[in-house]
Amino acid sequence: MSVLDSLDGARVHDIIVPGYLDTGRGHPQFAQLGGAVYLELELDRRFLLIDGSPAQGSLTLEIVDRIAATRWLDDEDEEFATAYIGGLFFDRGSAPRITRIRYAVNGESELDRGVLRCAEFRLGSTTHLFFDPMTFERLQLGVSGGYEDWQRESRDRERTIFGYTEEHVWEPATPPGERLSPR
């Protein structure tokens, strides 16, 4: 079963960004660690790790049980922190369902392992989250129109680096009114 198929019927409770507390400027401030975002899922409260850092130009999707702090911090003096930003994109109590994933693959992609070029998640009927690893920060989180921007501005230019890109659409097999038992 592919990572995408394991998302059938999944609802997103929150979007979590890993980071650390920067204490070097007086008051502690949250500093995002580039490269990854977690979607908190209804599936046994597990997370979908969307990671743009393992291989440049590839996006890795992985179902994980927890957010691992040690993976992100280089300095033992840094204190791991997370920012919950789902409320910026959808009503906090709503837990929208993943209703479609548009994604692109290229010669570097391995769909069975969750390795894609980029992906756009539609939550419910109106919220769109686009993830693109080809940025300075290693992962760009865009909203409605992000996938179309990538198609227009980057897809053809990237052919010289990655070769041809194929675009696909995944939709859940479970009808919207049904709820699946946790896996």
Score class of each variant (00 low, 15 high):
E62F: 04
F131R: 02
Q29T: 12
L73T: 10
E158C: 15
G86R: 05
G142I: 09
R159M: 13
D112C: 14
H13G: 14
A83S: 13
T165G: 04
E153D: 15
F131P: 03
L129G: 00
G34S: 09
V12S: 08
H168F: 08
V169N: 00
H128C: 01
T82V: 15
D91V: 10
S125E: 08
H13L: 04
G145I: 10
L139M: 10
L59T: 02
H13M: 05
T82D: 07
S154N: 06
C118K: 03
R66S: 15
D74G: 08
Y84Q: 08
E120Q: 11
V17Q: 05
V17T: 14
D77H: 13
W150G: 05
E79M: 13
A81S: 11
D51S: 09
D44V: 00
R117V: 15
S125Q: 11
H128A: 05
S2F: 10
Q151E: 11
L180T: 14
P96Q: 08
F30W: 08
L41N: 08
E166F: 01
L4N: 00
D112P: 09
R155D: 06
H27M: 14
G163T: 03
I16T: 12
G19P: 12
F136W: 13
Y147N: 06
S94I: 00
E137K: 03
G9N: 03
F89N: 08
Y164Q: 07
L139P: 04
Y38M: 03
E120M: 13
N106M: 01
R45W: 15
V37A: 09
V37L: 09
Y147L: 11
T127Y: 00
P96K: 07
R113H: 13
G142F: 05
A173P: 04
T60Q: 15
I98D: 01
L4W: 01
G107W: 10
A119G: 02
S53Q: 14
D14E: 14
A95H: 13
I63P: 10
L39H: 05
P175C: 10
R155Y: 02
R113K: 15
L7F: 06
T127R: 04
T99D: 03
T174K: 05
V64L: 09
H128K: 02
T174G: 04
P54E: 14
R152T: 12
